[in-house]
Amino acid sequence: MDPGAALVGLFGTLAVLVVATWLAAVLDGLGRALAVHQPVGLAALAAAPLARLGRLVRRADVIPANADGGLLWSAPVMAVAVVLLLAGVVPLGPGLVIADLNIGLFYVIVLLAPFVVALMNAGWGANAKYGVLGAFRAAGHLLAYEVPFGFAAIGAPMAAESLSLVKIVEGQDRLWYGVWQPVGFAIYLVSAAIITYRPPFDLPAADDLGGGVLADVSGPRYLLLRGSMLALWVLVSALGAVLFLGGWLGPLLPGPVWLVLKTAALMLAMSWVGYRLPRLRVDQMLGLSWKVLLPGTFLHIAITGVVILLQTGG
């Protein structure tokens, strides 16, 4: 690829991500308003993230006296990098993907881990008690979602016989995997909510820690970190649509529109359900991950395997 095309690709991806982040913030607000039965206008919902953006851009970037400034700054940089690297593999339509990797899904799962490190750096770099506690919560978080997330997602490549996200979408032209893999789909959505620190799983940045890892993050750093958390939510939801809802497949409308609609529907559902639930305590969240989600994924893999065997007549 020549450097010019690469630059155009990079800035194009960035622009799409910024719009996607804004949409994510709107869907977040809409889900919240629906969950608490609060009447609110769409215009107000659409404007709120922009107003917030304006405030955060103008706000001073305060680095506390005892904090490690480098570590604090590494957090948003890492988070944005993860989001950019992930955005490249999500197929928007037939041929509309920056990189159709043959290890696509594996690449996604590997890249999700550094996002936690970004949040841990924010908490640890603040060199403050609540930030450090938040960083430890984020570390406890990591394994608790990574394992069920991977096992839930594996049903799709099992059926498509490929890790490539494009091949996975193409494998769903007759029936979406989410329809006959409901357990895996449900567990995928829960662990996706955990990965992206959606409520009720936002404990590393919880109020009871005064904001936790985000307590000492201000101004533009806050904007970048919060923004990349929202962008990650979009990407993981889009991935859910790709793995379980047939990605861009759909009648009449062009492929990318279908993917956006499916992603938005998943996000709205996650937001609405999430805001209806009280935040989980760290022990409750770990219990849910290891005692419910993980055994559930084993069941999901077993059923998927049997179904595939029966279909292929083996």
Partner: peptide
């Protein structure tokens, strides 16, 4: 509100 039971809090 502290429990994040938002509908009840509202």
């Amino acid at each position: 509100r502290l429990l994040e039971a938002r509908p009840a809090a509202r």
